[in-house]
Design a protein around this nucleic acid. Sequence first.
DNA 1: AATCCCACCAACCGCCACCTC
DNA 2: CGAGGTGGCGGTTGGTGGGAT
Length: 241
Amino acid sequence: MPRVQLQQQQSTNMKKGAWSPDEDQKLKSYIMKFGIWNWSHMPKFAGLSRTGKSCRLRWMNYLRPDIKRGPFTMEEVEIVIKTYQELGNRWSAIAGRLPGRTDNEIKNFFHTHLKKQLGVKNVASMKRTKRILVKKDKDQNEMTNICADKSSPNVCNYSLEKSNTTIITWEENEMTDIVSSSNTVVDDMEIRQPVILGSNPEIEKISTNNVDCHLCQFEYPHPCTLSGLDFFLQFDVLWDA
DNA sequence: AATCCCACCAACCGCCACCTC
DNA sequence: CGAGGTGGCGGTTGGTGGGAT
């Protein structure tokens, strides 16, 4: 049987939805006793009618003993914002810097509290962010065909071989715009290599004097000295308004 | 009191990378 | 080298609760 079909069949026979306290107890006690050996096969040994994926998610995001619950502290918010600026939407990497917090929790927090303020408009742009970062991780000196969406007239398609130029997304650029617009908290913004946007939905807004030029921005990660906490506090004010 | 709206968050889904055979 | 299995990641969805009307 094809893999996808098998998965679908297994999926339909499995329980879905919210976990009951009984299921939680079964999974927790099984893992405490036998450890994690194989998520796919564990459920039936634990007496659960759940997929391995579902069990893994429940354990990782809720049942793990080292999970930290409750509202985010200011320090944690600062780390989230800083790391997002640095890494983009790599939630697991961000979670790695926040002991006890899960990627899912951080992602939810970001989407409910920070996304609007940071100007993240759509999923496609976030996917681009990921693609760029993966490429950078593999080869710091090579950036090729980063802007994949050739269907849009506003989307570029560059090939930059061994260049110091960095491509950022439109949303990252907007973040930079937000930061740079605050004179009170930004005290040192050094312009280095030009940055080419991955996508610019408002390309016609480009001006020639670089004041609002979205093609010439700061190196990514830009050397902004604005702390994440200040950044958050700014938005806190906006939320209250 | 009823309804609507919205924020929150747990959970699901699809995709991808890695590993093993 | 390719196929299949598994784990991990990120986007999205749907249920729920609380506030507003």
